[in-house]
């Protein structure tokens, strides 16, 4: 069984947010909900200012705190490491939302699935996509589990114009992501939290 993970090459990311849009199109998330996004990070003082783009998504942690705090078992990890929320079991207590150190979960409040991007009635696309969500539950990035099960890569990976996102099997030492992590010293976000994220950043 593979253990899926991702490497994000920060030297390659140009901050175009194509991944954000591809994710939106794939999952049809309601307004204000982004399973992936790109953070802008500005440091320094004028005239020496540095801007960096940091793509962000659920890190599908091996030791996921969201799973531990979930009182119903709705938040769970598959054998391949993908962390999912079973919305038929979720009670909307938001313990997972609070426990995620990366703040990568969203709560769908009552009435949120009636609001589309264009005001008034939902578009046929929104109607179709929203039908898989339940109000009053927590939703999150699924690593495009449906696509992965069908042998495809996540939408954000496929669409990235700079090939900054690389998806693969962390347990396979020959996979591209394992090689990149080894060669370029991939770092996990907030590694001191001991959550063992399956997403690594390449900064050097």
């Amino acid at each position: 069984m593979p253990r899926y993970g991702m490497v994000v090459d920060l030297k390659r990311c140009v901050g175009c947010n194509a991944c954000t849009v591809a994710c939106k199109a794939e999952h049809g998330t309601p307004p204000g909900i982004f399973f992936t996004k790109v953070f802008e990070q500005v440091t320094g003082k004028f005239p020496i200012v540095h801007k960096k783009y940091v793509p962000n998504l659920c890190y599908h942690c091996t030791d996921a705190p969201c799973n531990k705090v979930c009182p119903t078992g709705a938040s769970h990890s598959r054998e391949d490491g993908i962390v999912l929320v079973d919305d038929n079991q979720c009670i909307g207590c938001r313990a997972c939302y609070v426990a995620c150190p990366y703040k990568n979960r969203y709560f769908l409040p009552k009435g949120h699935l009636k609001k589309g991007y264009f005001g008034g009635k939902l578009t046929p696309f929104e109607e179709k996509k929203y039908s898989k969500y339940q109000e009053g539950t927590v939703i999150k990035c699924t690593f495009c589990a449906d696509r992965v099960d069908a042998g495809q890569k996540p939408a954000c990976v496929v669409t990235c114009i700079a090939a900054a996102r690389i998806f693969g099997d962390l347990d396979d030492p020959q996979s591209e992501i394992s090689r990149l992590i080894r060669q370029r010293g991939g770092s996990q976000p907030l590694s001191d939290m001991n959550t063992e994220p399956a997403v690594y950043y390449l900064e050097g």
Binding site: P71, T72, G73, A74, Q89, C90, I91, G92, C93, R94, F107, L108, P109, K110, Q134, E135, G136, T137, V138
Partner: peptide, 12 residues
């Protein structure tokens, strides 16, 4: 709770 009708699941 977002789904109070499922509150019993909290005991699991």
């Amino acid at each position: 709770l977002g789904r109070p009708e499922r509150f019993w699941r909290v005991l699991m």
